[in-house]
Design a protein around this nucleic acid. Structure first.
Lengths: 211, 211, 211, 211
DNA sequence: GATGAATGAGTCTTCATTCAT
DNA sequence: GATGAATGAAGACTCATTCAT
């Protein structure tokens, strides 16, 4: 009893918590399917709550979006932390990229999140996610570069962009395998190979102006 | 009376032709900016015609979309034909990819077209464009593979997908340079190098199931 | 058991009283600013209580309105009582009128009250206030008429109406001075002047059909 | 043929004109009854047109309001012009005031118009009407003052304010007669009488600061 | 008694689509 | 053929009111 209802201000009321959760879950699904402009009433309907309840919990579309968004981004950020301990830097990077694809594949709501990250709709939210995801990639990328395993002329921003773009097509049949294949090719392109210096003419366009 | 009430083959009437063209042009711009769901009234307004006129020429949104779409896709198809005569297969491929990026960059309406191609909204239309663009890539890809310059385990579909995805981010500052860099890395990944066989474990996920 | 479950006569419970008072105060302000249709949630917020608490004390919008209303009207009624002792009947009347203006000016909530009195929204409430205010004016008016200082062909209802109407414009800059001027002119119009009989044609329109 | 359809741009289309008129008429009634915040859907319903039609003709609530408003104000302005030719200045003024009351009484939509003029909701519109109505009164007032028939210390603004205020109560039974009586008293108060100087102390509040 | 969560009806507003001129 | 008016469905958002805690 000593640590009773010592939460923020008052009882968090059971049903309120449940409803909030339901709305988030529904929003994840609806945004995932219909994009960031999907109907909020559809979200409420799917969550089995009144539209008013949705608005009480998330007073604006952005607020709801952000709530859905952040948790997804956080998870990917945390995954990056874990993968830093993997022995093989390149494989760790590959793993993170694949996991992100998986994330999208399992409809965890990443689609909308990524779409938002892509087009800078709400700058504040985008800032957060861009930073978080960029950091996640950077951690793994830097390590692989430091190990001399991949070349240094691709920024984490570029890589994130490529990843998001590829996942953009997440509603075609077989997209997931396709993206995994493409990522592998991409990683191959990033690889340093001791015997052969990077092909002279080929990659100039990039290396010259990589920052 | 002999040619009665202007059947579909008689008198294309000058202003009708002009209006049709105007609507197409306007639609390109509007879809480009606002996506495939942009307001048709906005299109009519921009074209300087009444909304009724728009509907007369294009009875459905899809019809209009298709009309806009086809011409863009055609152009990219034709570019592919021309590039087949380039001496360097890989460079021809790179050129086509870059040109497509350029296409998007110059707001030639490709954005909406690609978006549509991406998500299979109107299957008929998608079929056409997928086929056309896939063919365009295939022509260049096959040639490079045949020349032994790039590996064979990436399908034109995959490549198209990657390209479209990367262009998806076309509203971020600097996206164009970024995409060009990424494409170069990608092409590097595709390159055959006599000295080093493709990394053993790395690309398995793809090579095993590439069709 | 004698004082069992707090019947309406037992224990007014300190916080309940305080909350009731707060709500009334808040309602005065909110109605004053936003009119009789202002948001009840705004009232609760301003009072610093939950919306449920507001509803417990005042189960309907009308109940709240009435509670706010009565106290204001009461005060003006009491003022009238006091002014009956003034030596100069006309000045007493003028004073009451000016005080009412002042009342409105100091945002004592009279605005909404008057508005309500004006348009017969809730007939019961209107009845009360009309009666009370009419009486207040009547007391002063009758006395001045009895003293032979003002003419008898204007009813307290008319006067009340004029007063309310003039105060209606209470949100224009300088309205207060304007109303005071107008009231003075009005009182001038009411004055009996031994030397000059009421202008023959002028006020007939009214005196003839006054009921 | 020479002067054929030389109207603004094209055919004003019969039904469009009719609908516009219907909407205006309906709006007059609805605003009159429910104030300037009345439901626009109610207006459309009453006009027997779709809500979309209402919006086509009047894209904003203000636009509709203005359309209703201006025509009423214009009429009162014109009435003032005519009355300037009346031989008796004071009677001309009285007549205008009474006509305005009549106007409100016959629900010509003035209610909402006046309410708007009163509270400065849309400054541009208010500016127009204030100016127009003030001018209307001024023309008559100045003339009566110049004729030495009424005193000079009441501005047209004050008078307009009093008039609007009194009409504010237009929904009480018998209000019209009441207002007419009050206006007569008021005019009496304005009258100059050679024999008796304005009561010494009484009206100072006003005369001192009249501009 | 106090609180604030839940609900849904009601408005505004936009647009796709149909049709009269 | 061109035009733009008419229509209503749909979605965002607000708030009064009820009720669980």
């Amino acid at each position: 009893m000593s640590d009773g209802p010592a939460t923020s201000l008052r009882k968090p009321r059971a049903d309120a918590v449940r409803n909030r959760e339901r709305v988030l879950e529904a929003a994840k699904g609806v945004f995932s399917a219909g994009g960031p402009d999907a109907s909020l009433e559809a979200v409420a309907r799917r969550a089995g709550v009144g539209i008013g309840t949705l608005y009480r919990h998330f007073p604006t579309r952005e607020a709801l979006f952000e709530a859905v968004y952040r948790r997804e981004v956080e998870q990917l950020g945390e995954l990056s932390e874990q993968l830093k301990n993997e022995p093989q830097p390149v494989e760790a990077l590959r793993q993170w990229l694949r996991s992100t694809v998986e994330f999208v594949a399992t409809k965890k709501g990443m689609t909308a999140a990524l779409a938002l990250a892509a087009h800078g709709k709400t700058s504040e939210l985008t800032a957060f996610s861009s930073e978080r995801l960029t950091k996640a990639i950077d951690a793994l990328l830097t390590r692989a570069v430091a190990a001399g395993e991949i070349r240094a002329d691709v920024s984490p921003e570029d890589l994130l962009r490529a990843l998001i773009g590829m996942c953009y097509l997440h509603d075609q049949p077989g997209w997931q395998q396709s993206v995994i294949r493409l990522l592998d090719v991409f990683i191959d392109g990033l690889r340093m190979r001791g015997d052969a210096p990077p092909p002279p003419g080929g990659k100039n366009g990039s290396s010259e102006e990589a920052r």
